[in-house]
Design a protein around this nucleic acid. Structure first.
Lengths: 183, 183
DNA sequence: ACCTGAACACCGTTCAAGT
DNA sequence: ACCTGAACACCGTTCAAGT
């Protein structure tokens, strides 16, 4: 990539992170271009769709998700608490920007989506945690990581749209945790 | 209301029901006005916001929800099956139009929303079913109807956005059902 | 090869003019 | 009192002209 193109690309990503944080992931792309100091055409040259831009933004979120999953896998706390904490962290991470949970929900399990690879990271992180419980014989047998991503994603979407408090999220997650454990 | 106004109101509601069914609840209002044979200003005179229009449309859905709740309350089938079937019906009803689940999720528990009264109908229907289980001692104690509306609503939103099959919805609901029953 | 910004399209919303 | 439809605003998207 040419030096000036690389510079513009970086400026757009920085501006998008700021605008998405302030106004949510459905914010006008125009505002991002303006803040980055480039024309709208330049934004479109680098990111053909809004989702391509989102993909670049959430890239940096994934390491934190993986770290949280690792912590859950290695934790020696009771299974229930481990799961509850992991889900709470998961929701918090994908809810960093308003409108974000909905983007993940739409892309989850859809290989055609520009952010599909990020959804795969989420799914694999969940899979690691679930496998740890499965080995311990604590998990119900008819459930897979994709399904769990969707269940927890649903909580995140609703919490995002209705602007729920953490305590509301926690009790909703509690129901799902209990539904996943035992028998 | 003047006779011509009433006629236009009715035409708009009929047209909206058709357009929402075909194109979802985020369809252009302009298309509804055109199909109803009225100007855009007339639509705005009768329905100040999109949600006011949605409120008029979903009004006719509520009787079906109530009927399903009554059937669940009076059913003599095992609790698990009763809950599972009730939730499946609930999701199907609020998912009749694409984009619908998200509207309910946003309005649920928000008295300022134009469709709040319809959300209350949903909540009370859920409350009736849950009380039946509570009396039987089958329900966990720390959960209320609003929370359940949100949990099931989350499933509906995700299913709607990812265009999930009924079988996928059923297994997600199964986890929640198990999480709600016993202890 | 990349950038700019004018231009177009689409759609929500308002309001002056009409009945 | 109600309706019409032109007009405006906003925003996504493209593309001819420039470097």
């Amino acid at each position: 990539m040419r030096a000036d193109a690389q510079r513009n690309y970086d400026k757009i990503v920085v501006a998008a992170a700021e605008v998405f944080t302030q106004r949510g992931m459905d914010a006008p792309l125009d505002e991002i271009a303006t803040r980055a100091g480039v024309g709208p055409g330049t934004l479109y040259r680098h990111f053909a769709t809004r989702e391509d831009l989102i993909d670049a933004i959430v890239k940096s979120w994934m390491a934190q998700i993986d770290a949280a999953a690792t912590e859950a896998v290695e934790s020696e706390a009771p299974t229930r608490e481990v799961l509850q904490k992991w889900f709470a962290t998961y929701v918090a991470r994908i809810s960093r920007n308003r409108g974000g949970p909905s983007k993940f929900a739409t892309a989850m399990g859809n290989p055609a989506s520009p952010i599909y690879s990020k959804c795969e990271v989420l799914r694999l992180a969940n899979d690691r945690v679930l496998n740890r419980l499965r080995d311990a014989g604590a998990l119900r047998s008819d459930v897979n990581a994709l399904e769990v991503c969707r269940l927890i994603g649903g909580v995140a979407v609703v919490a995002d749209q209705a602007e729920l408090a953490d305590s509301d999220i926690a009790s909703m997650l509690g129901v799902i945790v209990d539904g996943l454990l035992q028998n």
